[in-house]
């Protein structure tokens, strides 16, 4: 039986009727038309579906939409302030941290969550924070450089 739930996504409340067996990834992509959240493996192994759920980055493919009832969710669509990129996004653009882009939403959200808790992370702390987000294109280096650079920008 479907349940009526409230999802607070990117500071907007949505009331949706969902079957309990639908994941947060599915509801974001299919019901809320927010396909920035990607589905790479659907098993919690790749991090492409990362969203921030109440201040913590999680694999949305392993969250039931009903479990997210009344909780705050940030997806990649909610990171920029209108046309103004978040410093992390800006750094990704400038540092060549984007190749195919399929991991990028998850990378940006994991990085955002890190920098909100740790304003001046070491390279190892950045790599640790991104270690659940797989990237096959970049070798991670330019992503790590972008996050480091964003942390310096954000401190200012």
């Amino acid at each position: 039986m479907k349940k009526i739930i409230t999802l607070k996504v990117n500071n907007k409340e949505y009331e949706v009727a969902v079957a309990p067996n639908r994941t947060l990834t599915q509801v974001l992509r299919e019901d809320l038309n927010l396909p920035g959240t990607k589905c790479g493996c659907d098993m919690g192994d790749c991090g492409a579906c990362t969203v921030i759920l109440d201040d913590r980055p999680v694999n949305s493919c392993l969250v039931l939409a009903v479990q997210a009832h009344n909780r705050e969710i940030t997806t990649i669509e909610g990171v920029a302030d209108g046309p103004n990129l978040h410093p992390i996004q800006q750094a990704f653009v400038e540092h060549g941290a984007v190749q195919c882009g399929f991991c990028t939403p998850g990378m940006v959200l994991s990085a955002k969550s890190l920098l909100e808790k740790n304003m001046d992370p070491t390279e190892h702390e950045i790599r640790e924070a991104l270690s659940g987000n797989l990237c096959r294109c970049t070798g991670y280096q330019k992503i790590v450089e972008a996050v480091k650079s964003a942390s310096q920008t954000m401190k200012k």
Binding site: P57, N59, S131, G132
Partner: peptide, 9 residues
């Protein structure tokens, strides 16, 4: 254990 994303769930 797992990854930061897994540890958060």
């Amino acid at each position: 254990l797992g990854s930061p994303l897994i540890r958060n769930r």
